[in-house]
Every structure is written in C-alpha cells, then in structure tokens.
Simulated assay, not measured.
Amino acid sequence: MRQIVLDTETTGLNPRSGDRIIEVGCVEIVNRRLTGNNFHTYINPERDSEEGALAVHGLTTEFLSDKPKFAEIAGELLDYVRGAEIIIHNAPFDLGFLDAEFERLGLPPFAQHVEQVSDTLVQAKELHPGKRNSLDALCDRYGISNAHRTLHGALLDAELLAEVYLAMTRGQNSLSMDLGGIEQEAGAAAVEDVPLGDIVVLRATEDELAEHEALLDKLDKEVKGSCVWRAQPAEIAS
C-alpha cells in the first residue's frame, strides 16, 4: 500500500482571492514504512505573501523569485502522487489551493488523480474529541519531537505528520492472519495437513514477556483505555 503525506505553504488563506501555493512537501509511506522517496519543491507564486502568512512560513518574495512556477512542477507532482492514498492534515485547505492551481492549467481536480484523500484532522477529532488536534498538539500527544519547527515548512510538516499518522493508526483492525495469498511450493503439504507433532513451539522468555507487557502498558496509555491486544487475553496452556 502506497501512501503520500502531503503539505503545502501558501501566500495566504484564500485561493479564491488569488492566493497561491509557494511550497509543496510530500513524504512516501509504503506498507507503513517511510521510504525516503520524498518530493519537495518551492514555487514562485508571482505575487507577494500576506503579512500573516509570511510570519508563519518565512518564505520571502525575493527567495521565491527564481523558483519554478506551478505549471513547471505540476507534471512531476502528478507523476509522484498518482494512484496513491494522500494523507493531509485539514485536507480542505490544501485541496482548495491544489484544485485552484490545477484549474488554471485546465486539469481535473487533485482528488481525481489519486486513489483517495484521508484527513488526519478528522481522524484526530474522532480519536480525541474535545481536545486540541493541531499538528503541534498531536506531536506532543504522541511524543514526537517538533523542537526544530520554528517556522512552518511543507516538507518538515509532512515529515512530522507522517510520524503522527503512523502513531495514530498503530492499532490493528483484525487479529486474524490472511493466508489467501500464500502459494505452496510443489509437493508441499497444505497448511491444515501439517502434523501437529511437527510444529515446534518456542515460548517467550520472562524478559520478552516483560517487554511485551511494557509495550501494552504504553499502548493503553496512548489510547486512554485497553488496546486491542488486551481485548481477548490469550489462553495459557497448562
């Protein structure tokens, strides 16, 4: 499963009034692992940033003046995100700007190029109702250091959000194992035909059990309850 965590920085808050994207940062996750295959670019918006936005991201008109325009990076961005699940914090904001940029180029809306868009702000509000769910608040909640985040930056924020997303979705929906995709070698016995006497059981050591309990305690603390692994205690054979 390929997922892309995406963030943008902009000249202001409203694409309808002409505000533009000035930075795009993307972090790739494949099978819940960060790959390092990231996408990052600054963009010349051909206009100044509003004072409030400039205070947030610090990207001056002078710095951006020699950077490519959005039309020059659109194809590369689409090639990078195409077919993936896109993960964004407060997705309507970024999508509004992306769609406005694509509309200028005569392209379909951003969501039509990807598998789906998931909003971590919506997920966080469901998990932590009534609490602050900004990126900084979630970093604090999940123990992710953001001490180096003095200004907002699209790639830095995407990297932090990737860690938050992996921590926030660490639970497992099913305890069952899907063996449907396992192909047996020629002549190998079917799983159900393996004699029980041939199965070697390696029991956990006391140290391993202690580490397992410590991990469960940590998960319980994060979810403020009992994690899924405590839902059905394993039966101990006599």
Score class of each variant (00 low, 15 high):
residue 149 R to H: 09
residue 137 A to R: 05
residue 155 L to Q: 05
residue 158 A to I: 07
residue 147 A to W: 08
residue 142 Y to F: 15
residue 160 L to F: 10
residue 155 L to A: 07
residue 163 E to P: 00
residue 145 S to K: 11
residue 165 Y to F: 12
residue 163 E to D: 13
residue 144 I to E: 06
residue 142 Y to V: 01
residue 126 E to Y: 12
residue 162 A to E: 08
residue 132 R to P: 03
residue 147 A to Y: 07
residue 129 P to T: 02
residue 127 L to W: 07
residue 133 N to I: 06
residue 165 Y to I: 05
residue 127 L to R: 13
residue 132 R to K: 14
residue 112 Q to M: 07
residue 153 G to F: 09
residue 138 L to G: 02
residue 158 A to R: 02
residue 141 R to W: 02
residue 134 S to R: 08
residue 161 L to F: 00
residue 120 T to R: 04
residue 156 L to V: 11
residue 138 L to I: 04
residue 144 I to Y: 09
residue 161 L to T: 10
residue 147 A to P: 11
residue 164 V to Y: 01
residue 139 C to F: 11
residue 126 E to R: 15
residue 158 A to N: 01
residue 134 S to C: 07
residue 128 H to E: 06
residue 112 Q to G: 08
residue 147 A to C: 05
residue 151 L to C: 10
residue 160 L to P: 04
residue 139 C to T: 04
residue 150 T to K: 14
residue 151 L to R: 15
residue 126 E to K: 14
residue 138 L to S: 01
residue 165 Y to W: 13
residue 121 L to A: 06
residue 118 S to F: 13
residue 137 A to Y: 11
residue 147 A to E: 14
residue 112 Q to P: 00
residue 115 E to G: 01
residue 141 R to D: 00
residue 146 N to P: 10
residue 138 L to E: 03
residue 117 V to F: 02
residue 154 A to M: 09
residue 167 A to S: 15
residue 122 V to Y: 06
residue 111 A to P: 00
residue 128 H to K: 06
residue 135 L to I: 14
residue 144 I to H: 06
residue 159 E to Q: 14
residue 146 N to Y: 13
residue 138 L to Q: 01
residue 154 A to Q: 07
residue 167 A to I: 02
residue 120 T to A: 12
residue 160 L to Q: 11
residue 148 H to N: 12
residue 135 L to A: 03
residue 158 A to Q: 03
residue 142 Y to M: 04
residue 129 P to Y: 06
residue 130 G to H: 06
residue 131 K to Y: 13
residue 158 A to G: 07
residue 151 L to N: 13
residue 136 D to K: 15
residue 145 S to E: 14
residue 125 K to G: 08
residue 154 A to D: 08
residue 117 V to P: 00
residue 159 E to V: 00
residue 164 V to F: 01
residue 139 C to I: 05
residue 141 R to I: 03
residue 120 T to S: 15
residue 154 A to K: 10
residue 127 L to N: 09
residue 131 K to H: 12
residue 137 A to K: 08
residue 152 H to N: 14
residue 134 S to V: 09
residue 136 D to E: 15
residue 146 N to R: 13
residue 112 Q to R: 10
residue 143 G to S: 10
residue 163 E to H: 14
residue 127 L to C: 11
residue 138 L to K: 00
residue 115 E to W: 01
residue 157 D to G: 07
residue 126 E to V: 11
residue 118 S to H: 14
residue 126 E to G: 12
residue 155 L to I: 03
residue 162 A to N: 07
residue 135 L to M: 10
residue 137 A to S: 09
residue 163 E to Y: 08
residue 163 E to L: 11
residue 140 D to T: 06
residue 134 S to Q: 11
residue 118 S to I: 15
residue 137 A to W: 08
residue 129 P to I: 03
residue 124 A to C: 01
residue 134 S to K: 09
residue 126 E to Q: 14
